[in-house]
Amino acid sequence: MLKSIRRALILSVITLTSLSAGHAFAEPLKVVASFSIISDFAKNVGGDRVEVTTLVGPDGDAHVYEPSPADAVSMASAKLVLVNGLHFEGFLQRLVEASASKAAIVELTKGITPIDFKKEFAEAEEAEGGHEGHNHGSTDPHAFQSVVNAKIYVKNIADAFCNADSAGCDTYNANAAAYTEKLDGLDKEVREAIAAIPQEKRIVITSHDAFGYFEHEYGLTFLAPQGLSTDSEPSAADVAKLVEQVKQDKAAAIFVENISNPRLIEQISVETDVKVGGTLYSDALSKANGPAATYIDLMRNNIKQIKGAILGS
């Protein structure tokens, strides 16, 4: 009885507070973002109406991430969980089970046009039966590497926030529109940067095949020894094949990624005499003091690195 009265009083207080004081005293919407890029999108759309907890943080690798009990606690108290989908977060299912979370899980790739991995990677994945924890199938999950897709992520986030917090919907939509305008500008920058690179020089090498959507959208060819996931180990034969391919295709530049061990790329660099051009940010932002602390900075850093390595900075 006492509990019921207390609950009724609390509800009254919440209702009265919402009506009288608006958002200033409302609890922020608790949101879990599966990795740092989604977290940045969510903060741009949600502003101070949302409290975002990021599972796989800056420079973290979602492919091999192992969730912790602390993550399960975050999941349990969240109202929304924003994920990439397309089997990107292999850890998600067991984390949902461990946390017993009732949060709505929103796949932000809903509405994008998925592309398949390059044939050779899909075959390798199939031959090896996926990798520990999950199997990508033939669909490339790294859709955020196209700014056009990033805008779809942003729209999906705004819709999810509106569903969860209708009082803030106008704010979310306004924030999403403002951020989308910035993404339009970013998209233009990327296209201009790639257009400045001669067609025959638009081949680069990265650690793992995370840039399929970038390639598809902007017309730069990426070769990668590690296939779809950082969790797969390339064989010596795979690396030798890539070295030969690099020599034949005359790749213009080679890059390490922020989430991958650089040793393999350094080996290929030595064998092909193509120097390492810098670090590309693939599946994660940099730390706050790094060159890719936001999604927009990430894309700007990547095109700057690519352009600089191919054309000379």
Binding site: E66, P67, S68, P69, A70, D71, A72, R94, L95, A98
Partner: peptide
């Protein structure tokens, strides 16, 4: 070592367990 969640479980005195989550505050 935990399976599925990354944590460690140990003894700590005769009648206690210690949960170690290196990612937690």
């Amino acid at each position: 070592g935990g399976k599925g969640l990354q944590y460690f479980l140990g003894n700590y005195g005769a009648d206690r367990l210690v949960l170690i989550d290196p990612s937690a505050n």
